[in-house]
Each structure stands twice: as C-alpha cells, then as structure tokens.
C-alpha cells in the first residue's frame, strides 16, 4: 500500500511546487506513477539523478549547497593553544581530562579500580592496558558481549576518531579501536583516548574528517539533562563518568 502513498506524496510535492505533471497518475493498478516525476517509477534513483548535479542547484558537483558561504571552514587555534581549548571545553561539560606524553598505560590503569572487569574493542592498542590488572573482555565480531555482560563491566576503554576543540566533542566512528556503539554506552564509565593528531579546532574541520556512512556517535561530556527547570545535571542514561586521556606522542 505504501507504494501508492509514496507516489501520492511525491505527486503532492510536485503540485505544491507548481511543477507540471505533479499529481497526475498514468496507472492505477500496477503501482501508480506520477507523470513527469523526476524519480520515475523505479523506487530507486541513481546518483546521476541527484539534484546536486542538476542545473539550478547551487552546488553542482556535490559537496555543500553553497560553497561561497562565508562561515568559517577552518579555525585559528593550533599547537598547545588548540589542546588547551579542548581541555577547557571538555572540563566545562564535566569530563575529566588527563594529559599524557607518550605511553598512556599508567594513566589509564590509574583511572580504573584494579581487579575490576572492563571491556575493550578488538582494535585497541594492547600496550594501553599493560599496567591494568583486572579482567579484560575483548568485544569482537562473533564474540560480542551480551547486553547483560556489558552491564556487568566497570568500564570501557576506547580510542576516538576525531576531537573538536571548540565544542569539546569527541567522535567515535565504529572503527576497530572505537568499537560498536553498545560497548561505550552500557558501562557506566568511559575512558576515551584522544590522540593530539586527531584534534581539530572547529566543527567543519571535524565533519570533514569523518566517514559519513559509519555509525557515528558525537560525545560532548558525560550524559546530561536540562529537563528540570533547565538546570544541567550530569549523569542520566549514558556513562556517568567520562575520562578523556589526551595523548601526545
């Protein structure tokens, strides 16, 4: 039935936009098709039909709609100033920040109670856990921890894909060292390693570094709510403690 709905909605849109042919149907039995519909009756359009490539669309060739927009695409902070900005913004949103030169293993071990059980994604650098004494479960394809098992972990340790200094945002992209989404969600404590090389200044620089088709999670501080009298309270459903370890190698 929804094929009919699809064609009718697209027909209404064409009519609303004053396009010729909008809403006129050439068939009523075998899947109705609005005459002149830009999508045809296939239900799928090819990339060639994408409006980016259409005359009249400002961004012929893809990319953002208007490439002449004068908002900032790159920031002005770099080096130590950039790291300090990230630290400031992370702390403002109540993440705990730790800076390390070289090997982060001792710092990571110090953040998690020794002897407790933790989960890590399969691609995590082994050396980061060499000082930790406890039970480490590796979550990997075919060996995923169940939700109750994840719930029993004291912490999760992951890397990150990008960190945006201006907003204090860390992005996880499902890569082997970030892991699937559930492992950074169910445990109550997330230890997240950020490499200095992955820090960018502003949002556009961060978006440009991401793989769009990945399952992405943008994290800015621990779970929080402002639902009661607009007062920000940290710690609702996501991990209530976020430790960020910034590693300068």
């Amino acid at each position: 039935m929804t094929d009919t709905a699809r064609e009718e909605i697209l027909g209404r849109i064409n009519q609303a936009l004053g396009r010729r042919g909008g809403g006129e149907y050439v068939s009523s039995s075998s899947g109705t098709v609005p005459a002149g519909s830009p999508t045809g009756g296939e239900g799928h359009s090819s990339a060639a039909e994408a409006p980016h490539a259409q005359p009249g669309a400002p961004a012929a060739g893809g990319g953002t709609v208007d490439q002449s927009a004068d908002y900032f695409r790159t920031g002005t902070h770099e080096g130590e100033e950039l790291i300090e900005l990230l630290v400031d913004r992370l702390e403002d949103y109540k993440a705990n920040v730790h800076r390390v030169s070289g090997d982060p293993a001792a710092t990571i071990a110090g953040l998690i109670e020794s002897g407790s059980a933790i989960v890590v994604p399969r691609g995590l650098d082994d050396s980061w856990l060499q000082d930790f004494t406890g039970e480490v479960s590796v979550d990997a394809p075919g060996q995923e921890l169940s939700v109750p098992e994840l719930d029993a972990q004291a912490a999760v340790v992951t890397a990150s894909a990008v960190a945006i200094a201006q907003t204090g945002t860390i992005v996880l992209d499902g890569s082997p060292e970030c892991g699937r989404r559930a492992i950074t969600l169910v445990p109550d404590h997330h230890v997240c390693v950020v490499r200095v090389a992955d820090i960018v200044d502003i949002v556009p620089e961060g978006v440009a570094r991401l793989r769009p088709s990945a399952a992405l999670t943008f994290i800015s501080g621990p779970s929080a709510t402002s639902d009661i009298e607009l007062k920000r309270v940290e710690g609702v459903h996501g991990p209530r403690t976020l430790d960020v370890v910034i590693v300068d190698t």
Binding site: G168, A182, A215, G221
Partner: peptide, 19 residues
C-alpha cells in the same frame, strides 16, 4: 544553549554487527 549537546548519533540503514 550548549556548544554541543552531549550525544548525537548517526546511522545509515543497517550497520552490520552494530545496533
């Protein structure tokens, strides 16, 4: 009124083995 909200998620159809 935040520089960034705590969590933003993106997904594209089905991600194998994730979600």
């Amino acid at each position: 009124g935040e520089r960034m909200n705590p969590y933003t998620s993106f997904w594209t159809g089905v991600t194998e083995g994730d979600g």
